[in-house]
C-alpha cells in the first residue's frame, strides 16, 4: 500500500484490521478512522463522483473532500456523480454496517453479534474456525458463543480445522479426522479385507458403503464389516 494513503492514527499491536464496503467492493483499511481521500483513492472513485455513507435513507451522508470518517459508525458506502448529490438534511438513521469473512461481504443489522451469528450469516461449515483479523500474528479463534462487537473490527477470516473424532469399526475404537473419510480409509483402519462390505449403522438401519465412496464423519459413528454373503440357496 502507498504509505501516503495510510491513515494517521497509530496502530496498536492487537488492533483489528478494518474494511469498508464501497459499491459492494471490499476496501481494506488499516484503521477505523480514515479520510475520504483514502477511501476515494483505494476505491478508485473518479474525481467527478462523491462518496456517500449508506444509511438506507434519502438523506445518506455525502462525505466532503478529505473529511475524516469513523468506520465504527458505519462502513458501507456508495458513489454517485457529484451533480446528483443534492442538498440533504442531517441523516437521522444509523449507518449500515458490513462485516467481511474471507473477502465476502454481508451487512449486519446491529453492532452486537456472536461467533455463531456471524457463522450463520456466512453459512460457514463446521470444519472451519473463525478468526478476527488483527494486526497481530496471534489471532484467536472465535467460539460460537463468543460476543462480537462490530466496533472492535469487521474483518474476519476462516481456516480449516482438523477435528479428530472417535468412531467404532467392528467394535474397536479409532481416531479419524472429522469430515469426509473415504471408505477405503475406514476399512484400512481396522484391516477390513478388500472384498468385505463395510456397513454403517445409521440411525436404525444398516447402510452398505461403496468401496469408492466417502462418509461424512462427525464422531460416534458405528461401522461393521462382513464378508459378502453368497450363500443363498434358492
Amino acid at each position: 500500500m502507498n504509505p501516503i494513503l495510510e491513515t494517521q492514527t497509530s496502530k496498536t499491536a492487537s488492533a483489528a484490521k478494518w474494511a469498508a464496503s464501497i459499491d459492494d467492493n471490499k476496501i481494506a483499511i488499516s484503521d477505523p478512522t480514515v479520510s475520504e481521500a483514502v477511501l476515494r483513492a483505494q476505491a478508485g472513485v473518479p474525481d467527478d463522483f462523491v462518496v456517500v455513507r449508506d444509511h438506507n435513507s434519502p438523506d445518506d451522508f455525502v462525505l466532503k473532500r478529505d473529511e475524516m470518517v469513523d468506520l465504527r459508525d458505519g462502513n458501507v458506502f456508495y458513489t454517485i456523480c457529484a451533480t446528483e448529490a443534492d442538498k440533504r438534511k442531517a441523516c437521522e438513521k444509523p449507518a449500515k454496517l458490513a462485516v467481511f469473512v474471507d473477502d465476502r461481504i454481508e451487512e449486519i443489522g446491529k453492532s452486537k453479534q456472536t461467533g455463531g451469528s456471524i457463522r450463520a450469516l456466512f453459512e460457514l461449515p463446521g470444519d472451519v474456525a473463525l478468526f478476527r483479523d488483527l494486526h497481530s500474528p496471534n489471532d484467536v479463534p472465535i467460539e460460537a458463543n463468543a460476543a462480537i462487537d462490530f466496533r472492535d473490527g469487521p474483518v474476519f477470516y476462516t481456516r480449516a480445522v482438523t477435528l479428530v473424532v472417535e468412531i467404532s469399526i467392528n467394535g474397536r475404537k479409532y481416531k479419524t479426522q472429522a469430515g469426509k473419510n473415504s471408505v477405503q480409509h475406514l476399512k484400512a483402519l481396522d484391516g477390513v479385507p478388500t472384498n468385505d462390505i463395510l456397513s454403517e449403522l445409521r440411525g436404525d438401519k444398516f447402510v452398505d458403503l461403496r468401496d469408492t465412496g466417502h462418509v461424512q464423519v462427525k464422531g460416534g459413528e458405528v461401522f461393521v464389516s462382513h464378508p459378502q454373503s453368497a450363500g443363498s440357496s434358492r
Partner: peptide, 22 residues
C-alpha cells in the same frame, strides 16, 4: 430365507448386516 451369512466376523452387528444382504 435360506441365507448362509458369512460369519468370519462374529460380531453381532456384522452377522445381522450380513443377513440383511439377502
Amino acid at each position: 430365507v435360506s441365507w448362509k451369512a458369512q460369519d468370519s466376523n462374529k460380531r453381532l452387528s456384522a452377522i445381522l448386516a450380513s443377513h440383511l444382504e439377502a
